[in-house]
Amino acid sequence: MKEIKSVDEWERVLDESKNGPVFMMKHSSTCPISASGYRAFEAYETDIPKNYMIVQNNKPISRAVEEDLGIPHESPQLFLVKDGKAVWNASHYNIVQTSIEKAIEVNS
């Protein structure tokens, strides 16, 4: 998993999605619900690139993700991005391995 620490890095992730799907997670370092979702995401094995950002440290990235994908901010929040668009997203208790697996099955 790669931590995204700048808007430029986020833009590279968005560009990468034009070559194949990528994951992007907005993670809150202070929220136990986010910690649970993060662990599920981290443990899920896939060849799809997995990226995350910590909301408290990177509000500009969080805003850019919201604007670029057109989906209101929540935390935690996980996106499957393809061709520069979110083809799937989940938040809070919906970030579990079964939902991630289903997202890949439907959108790959």
Rank of each mutant, 00 (worst) to 15 (best):
P72K: 14
A90M: 09
H73W: 03
L14W: 11
S36L: 10
E101T: 01
I61W: 10
E11T: 00
E16R: 13
C31S: 13
N19K: 14
K18H: 14
C31M: 01
I95W: 05
K102L: 13
S28M: 01
M1I: 12
R12S: 14
S62E: 08
H92M: 11
M24Y: 14
N57A: 05
F41R: 13
K18P: 00
A40P: 00
E74K: 10
W10N: 09
E66T: 11
T46I: 03
V87S: 12
I33N: 05
F41E: 05
S99I: 00
V96L: 13
K59H: 11
H27V: 02
F41I: 05
S91R: 13
K26G: 02
V87K: 15
I33K: 01
G84L: 12
V55W: 04
P72T: 06
Q97E: 13
L78N: 08
R12Y: 09
K2I: 10
N107A: 05
S108R: 15
D68Y: 07
V7C: 06
S28D: 06
D15G: 12
S91I: 00
S91Y: 13
S34P: 00
S29Y: 01
F41D: 06
P60T: 07
E11F: 09
E67T: 12
A43F: 01
A40E: 15
P76Q: 07
E3H: 04
H27A: 06
C31R: 00
K82N: 11
N94E: 12
S34I: 00
